[in-house]
């Protein structure tokens, strides 16, 4: 294992996903449509409900975070989905590639794409609703983005693991289950309003902490002691777990023949 080969394998996946993304119009549609719809509808709703500027910022941060995470995790899931859709999964795993190359390579593309979406949404929020993403400052913003990316990485890898475990028919299920968890993070509300047991789940989600830290700059007092450190620690823990699950799923697929079945 040399660093050169490691980077090369990651780069190969990055390039592959980028080329696929650039050439499939529908991927672009997915990229832009829902995020824009999200920000517009939430922004207009906040106007209708006559929310204060701070409250409007609160929910807009939520919907922007959700968009970033969604776009980025979708790209990470493409690490296996592209191969599943094109039935080339067995070629992929015949090559000396590790799952880290797949997930990192597609994560890089995911970050670039969701960064583009973020810039667009930030401009839209500013123009239509006077919402300023840089108000908390660069460091806070970049930390927030990193939090979103990390959460997306975890979610994407988990989706990969589920698809490899249950086969391509489980695609929708994989997304639904993982995204359900995501919505529990305090996207549109502080988690203090949640019933206890759901709040407990929300507290286990890294995004909750990154949202909390970022929103604290918009005048909402932080609900946690060290949100960023907690969010990072949780993200890394889950990333490790998700990768382990993905690896186990691949090994199982080699045993059961699912790897071959998904390639024919």
């Amino acid at each position: 294992m040399s660093w050169r080969n490691e980077l090369l394998a990651v780069w190969a996946v990055t390039l592959r996903n980028a080329l696929m993304g650039a050439r499939n119009v529908f991927f672009f549609f997915e990229l832009l449509f829902w995020p824009i719809v999200g920000v517009l509808s939430i922004g207009l709703m906040s106007r209708f409900l006559e929310l204060t500027e701070a409250q409007a910022s609160f929910v807009l941060v939520g919907t922007i975070a959700l968009s970033i995470v969604n776009v980025c995790q979708l790209e990470v899931a493409y690490a296996v989905l592209l191969d599943v859709w094109s039935k080339s999964l067995k070629h992929q795993f015949l090559a000396p590639i590790g799952i880290r190359h797949l997930t990192l390579g597609s994560w890089v593309v995911g970050m670039v794409r969701s960064l583009a979406v973020f810039v667009l949404l930030a401009a839209l929020g500013r123009w239509a609703f006077g919402f300023h993403v840089l108000q908390p400052g660069w460091v806070a913003l970049l930390t927030f983005l990193l939090g979103c990316f990390l959460t997306a990485w975890v979610v994407g890898v988990a989706v990969c693991a589920l698809i490899t475990l249950f086969g391509n028919r489980a695609e929708a299920f994989a997304w639904a289950s993982v995204n359900l968890v995501l919505v529990l993070a305090g996207i549109y509300y502080p988690i203090s309003v949640l019933p206890d047991f759901i709040a407990a789940i929300a507290k286990a989600i890294p995004l909750t902490y990154f949202l909390d830290a970022y929103r604290s700059h918009y005048g909402f007092e932080s609900e946690f002691g060290a949100p960023i450190a907690t969010g990072l620690a949780l993200s890394l823990l889950y990333a490790a777990l998700a990768h382990w699950a993905f690896l186990a799923a691949i090994q199982r697929a080699r045993r059961t023949g699912l790897l071959l079945k998904m390639s024919e």
Binding site: R16, L19, M20, D83, S86, K87, S88, S263
Partner: peptide, 10 residues
């Protein structure tokens, strides 16, 4: 394999 398959847009 005789029934090859690769990413469609590449």
């Amino acid at each position: 394999s005789g029934r090859p398959s690769f990413l469609w847009s590449l």
